[in-house]
Design a binder for these strands. Structure first.
Length: 299
DNA sequence: TAGGCGTGGAC
DNA sequence: TGTCCAAGCCT
């Protein structure tokens, strides 16, 4: 790993000041949000934000929390209801995982979102990022919160690369070394690194002229070299199994009573083998079930 | 560790 | 148009 040229002590205060003045006003950052929904609100927001843009999440989050304001209320829903409410947010397995997590929280933690990172990691659909995001943002504890934005800021500002490498456990170690001493300052630092990456230090066309740490940025001082050759490319979507799965589930979501005759499910799909493979894989994932020549959302 | 997994907006 | 990208997780 390249040498770190900026002392961590310089970064946090500068970013904290910038964050206080420039951070977006997002629902889950408002005190009323925490007062109303607590850690559950944070947890739901983090599930929805996994690979889905902020602007698409906001309306869904508010509808979701109005319907299921606590883990226990959601634990009593059916998978079909949850998948329907998830609507077109994408990656619908997240809806099942969130539902499962709500049940686990109800059964293992008496309906209260746990504060302990290991307990959070043990819940369905929660990994290194989400567990620490909940612990840091909902409970104010000092943990390294590392998402794609954080990794990009570290790659550029500290390592002089245009894009971070693949996510790795070592990212947690690198971020932990940058955290301020106190819980409060750490939470702000985590949020500020993410915010900078999301709004200024973006993947494409970064706005370096608006960056509060541009003077210390190793990447800028190196002439902003393109070092992104080794990045993993997202697989082609057009014609993919994912597209077929999405079409099947969309048909189910829009059907009456959440079910369709099996032979009517995207019957005009150009590749019948792929269509059947998509249906089978959705059933295997628990996102659909077959019964009596019908395909339906899971009950 | 690499590949699979939705959806839609921006360019 | 096609390509990239988005507060990741699971296997």
């Amino acid at each position: 790993m390249p040498a770190i040229s900026t002392p961590p002590s310089d970064l946090a205060p500068t970013l904290a000041e910038w964050y206080r003045s420039d951070a977006r006003d997002l629902p889950w950052r408002r005190p009323e949000f925490h007062a109303q929904f607590g850690a559950w609100g944070t947890l739901v927001s983090e599930f929805m934000l996994q690979q889905t843009p902020v602007t698409r999440v906001i309306p869904h989050l508010e509808a979701w929390l109005r319907r299921w304001p606590t883990p226990t209320s959601m634990s009593r829903a059916t998978p079909a209801e949850v998948v329907l409410q998830w609507a077109n947010l994408g990656y619908p397995r997240r809806a099942l995982w969130l539902h499962r997590a709500a049940i686990e929280i109800t059964e293992r933690h008496s309906g209260a979102v746990p504060r302990d990172v290991d307990a959070l990691l043990a819940l369905s659909g929660i990994g290194d990022y989400t567990a620490r995001a909940v612990a840091a943002f909902a409970f104010g504890d000092r943990h390294p919160v590392v998402d794609t934005n954080t990794r990009r800021v570290i790659a550029r500002a500290l390592e002089g690369r245009s894009h971070p490498g693949p996510a790795a456990r070592s990212d947690l170690v690198a971020m932990r070394a940058l955290l301020p001493e106190s819980d409060d300052e750490s939470a702000v630092f985590n949020a500020a690194m993410m915010e900078l990456g999301a709004t200024v230090c973006t993947s494409r066309a970064p706005k370096c002229e608006r960056c509060p740490i541009s003077a210390q940025c190793v990447w800028i001082n190196a002439g902003r070299p393109d070092t992104g050759d080794g990045r993993r490319r997202q697989a082609r979507y057009e014609g993919s199994d994912r597209q077929a799965r999405g079409a099947v589930l969309k048909a189910l979501r829009h059907s009456d009573a959440g079910e369709l005759p099996l032979d009517a499910v995207i019957h005009d799909w150009p590749d019948a083998v792929q269509r059947d493979r998509a249906i089978d894989s959705l059933i295997a994932d628990g996102l659909a079930e077959a019964a009596e020549h019908m395909l339906r959302l899971p009950r």
